[in-house]
Design a binder for these strands. Structure first.
Lengths: 206, 206
DNA sequence: CGAATATGTGAGGAATTAATCACATTTTGC
DNA sequence: GCAAAATGTGATTAATTCCTCACATATTCG
């Protein structure tokens, strides 16, 4: 099944249409999930006719794929920016920055982020999701490299970064599930911090 | 929407029918996902007429709910059994046992496990899923309690167990995504082991 | 301007699917 | 053995949904 856009919007008017469609899809996706998603409802919510929708997206899956692409990029950008905004002097501060960046990067509706992860495989966008994860893992690797001396020497930084990225993503999902964004999972976050720092600084084991 | 079974099968023949329906649903769910699931196809795969299906399940969601209930219990049982089969003398061995139990408990098709997690919320079965997670976290807590002296004294064991359960589940999903069950994620598993042990044994931090 | 191109519209066709129900078959309990 | 209960059947229906297409409107550019 082809999920590529049918054609690019050239005029500003068309770009607005496409944008509205993607936003509307994201909203409906988070509210009711993929299987409840109807093209007619997307068009209605976007304030656009079904004909316009099908002019740019060949089918329902393409809508979801567009959402995954759009918000995936947005998510990674937000993470990178949030991480770059700080200049952590110690490893502990660096880990705090990572946790903070993860929480900040998440859309206010974590449901959207979850929906994307669930959707990507069904819509031929695993690759894209992996790219996002890899990009973030890369940022984490760079951050770890900066504090190489504080980290157990036998640890492979890329491996460690991959694991940390996975844990951050999971824990933040769980945390945001229970609490509003602002005070997201006080305890959970503290535990997470300890988990990561202990891992990075633990002496090598047989 | 009511997702409760319509009536209980009394005769053995009827139990076989229901069983076949649940199994068929699980297979189709892992292969094609919920939105592609059709009641007709479930009935066909189960070797049963649609009428029979609707005699026990009021709708499509009820089918998925039954699968979640069935395999959730099965998963927790498998974990408990696998963990109980070993008698870990040290904390490290205990952690190994947990990791092993998690991998063993997973159905051979991790896709089913994932599908269940994705489905539960859409089908009114979050509660059930949480129960499974809690039961496993409880087992982990018991295991940790046995090795209290090897663990940082300021750690709350229940909190730690919850975090460990979350990490185990996530990492095993990721690991099983890439490798067959037998040699599941060699490196990933080793990293995970180190992560958990470091966390548990790290001295308390300001 | 005015022709060519881009974009927008929404009724309706074609296909799919959830769910029912009237009836057939099997099992149970006496 | 037989009535009553339990179970099984599948054609059919009503509703939904994806997507097209013929046509209207808007924008661009020489």
């Amino acid at each position: 099944m082809d999920v590529n856009p049918r054609k690019f919007p050239r005029q500003a008017r068309a770009r607005a249409t496409v944008e509205a469609i993607v936003v509307a899809t994201a909203q409906l996706l988070t509210d009711h999930g993929f299987e409840a998603l109807t093209t007619a409802e997307v068009a209605e919510r976007a304030g656009v006719s079904i004909g316009s929708l099908y002019q740019y997206f060949p089918n329902k899956q393409a809508l979801a794929a567009a959402v995954v692409d759009h918000y995936g990029e947005q998510f990674a950008d937000a993470f990178v920016e949030a991480l770059g905004a700080r200049a952590p002097a110690t490893l502990a501060e660096s880990v705090d920055a990572m946790i903070h960046a993860t929480l900040v990067a998440h859309p206010h509706e974590p449901a959207l982020h979850r929906a994307m992860i669930e959707l990507a495989p069904r819509v031929g966008r695993v690759e894209r999701t992996r790219e996002v994860a890899n990009r973030i893992a890369g940022e984490i690797t760079a951050e770890l490299t900066r504090h190489r001396r504080e980290i157990a020497p036998d640890l492979d930084l890329a491996d460690a970064a991959a694991l940390i990225q996975l844990v951050l993503e999971t824990v933040s999902h769980r945390a945001l599930q229970h609490h509003p964004v602002s005070l997201a999972g006080e305890g959970m976050v503290r535990q997470c911090r300890r988990l990561i720092i202990a891992y990075l600084t633990s002496p090598s084991m047989g």
